[in-house]
């Protein structure tokens, strides 16, 4: 007799909600739930996996710099206007979650604070799906701008980031006050991820309101490091280490479209095949592999890749029995 080998995991991943509906004090049409896993990815026969991984469309507050033609084909006509861009993603591509990167806030671009405030206010009115807000990556500027964003979006239960080990206090305080959750970024390092979660929760923000960004390497560019760090963190969570039981957010689009394999024209490397399919697949495979390591939110760019990865997740969830 073959008896199935069932692991009795003692812990579970925290459940986190993005977006608040009018009944909850916000203005979103629905909210998105992630986390809650009690076993490893897609092992439905072992234990509960209550919520599907979700995909967030990445959009910018300015016309994106250096985005591939493979992407401009789909929304290049609107990406000069963030609100129209968001609107198109929701109407045409059925986006259920948006990740707005405030790239224009970077000192090198120096977008006005007023403009950013106006944009966010406009977005709140125009768009009624849950939001993720990401800073420009410049610590000083982000510390100034993100708390302001947090305030404007008060009670909308957004996910805002990012903070790291050296810079977490300002944003943590803001997010705590305004009812949002936070993205804690660590450089492919399990100890720093854990340490940062402790630091943030020591300031009073519950662990249940933290999402870990483990830092993603694209396919062929360190994917395996991210993969194993995520597996280790997830195993720790399932073994009841509450401090690291956070869902993961993975910036798949930004990383996979950066690499040479995603965009180099076929005429330069004929063996690699068409760059249109290659770029799309590079993002798709990176996303697919990270799902196997436990990704909860994938931030992506190519509409067809997003559509396909959703179909794949649905296909896996057909098997869900509990």
């Amino acid at each position: 007799m073959i008896k199935e080998y069932i692991e009795n995991w003692s812990g579970e991943v925290n459940t986190l909600v993005i977006g608040a509906t009018p009944e909850e004090g916000g203005s979103r049409r629905f909210s998105v739930k992630i986390g809650g896993e009690r076993t490893l990815p897609f092992l439905f026969k072992e234990a509960l996996l209550p919520f599907k991984p979700v995909i967030a469309y990445e959009i910018w507050d300015i016309e994106p710099i250096d985005w591939a033609t493979a992407l401009s084909k789909y929304y290049g006509d609107v990406w000069g206007n963030t609100l129209e861009w968001a609107d198109k993603l929701i109407r045409e591509y059925k986006a259920e979650l948006l990740c707005l990167k405030l790239a224009g806030a970077h000192p090198e671009i120096g977008k006005d604070l007023d403009e950013i405030v106006k944009l966010l206010e406009g977005l709140l009115k125009k768009v009624d799906i849950p939001l993720i807000i990401i800073g420009c990556g410049d610590v000083q500027r982000d510390n100034f701008i993100l708390p302001l964003c947090s305030q404007i979006l008060k009670n909308e239960r957004c996910l805002i980031g990012e903070v790291n080990q050296d810079n977490y206090k300002t944003l943590t305080a803001a997010v705590l006050a305004d009812g949002h959750s936070i993205i804690a970024q660590s450089p492919i390092d399990i100890n720093i991820a854990k340490q940062l979660n402790i630091l943030i929760s020591d300031m009073g923000l519950p662990l249940e309101r933290i999402v870990i960004n483990p830092t993603v390497g694209a396919l062929g560019y360190g994917l395996e490091y991210t993969y194993s760090i995520m597996e280790r963190l997830r195993l720790a969570a399932l073994n009841n280490d509450r401090v690291v039981a956070s869902p993961f957010i993975c910036f798949v689009g930004q990383e996979s479209w950066r690499v040479k394999e995603a965009t180099t024209p076929e005429k330069e490397f004929s063996r690699w095949g068409s760059e249109w399919r290659r770029g799309y697949l590079w993002e798709l495979i990176t996303a697919g592999a990270l799902l196997q390591a436990g990704a909860n939110i994938l931030v992506m760019r190519h509409p067809k890749a997003i559509e396909k990865i959703k179909e794949y997740i649905d296909k896996l969830y057909e098997f869900k029995i509990n």
């Binding site: 897609f42 396919l219 993969y227 394999e261 063996r271 690699w272 095949g273 068409s274 399919r277 290659r278 697949l281 590079w282 798709l284 495979i285 697919g288 592999a289 799902l291 196997q292 390591a293 396909k308 990865i309 179909e311 794949y312 296909k315």
Partner: peptide, 30 residues
């Protein structure tokens, strides 16, 4: 494309041989 994603999951999770009915270079490269 779904086939490709299934292949991705089986490479990550324990397959010893994967047989495919595609030979397009982009897919195999990935």
């Amino acid at each position: 494309d779904l086939s490709l994603l299934f292949t991705v999951s089986y490479i990550a999770k324990y397959a010893g041989i994967i047989l495919l009915d595609t030979f397009s270079p982009e897919d195999i490269f990935g």
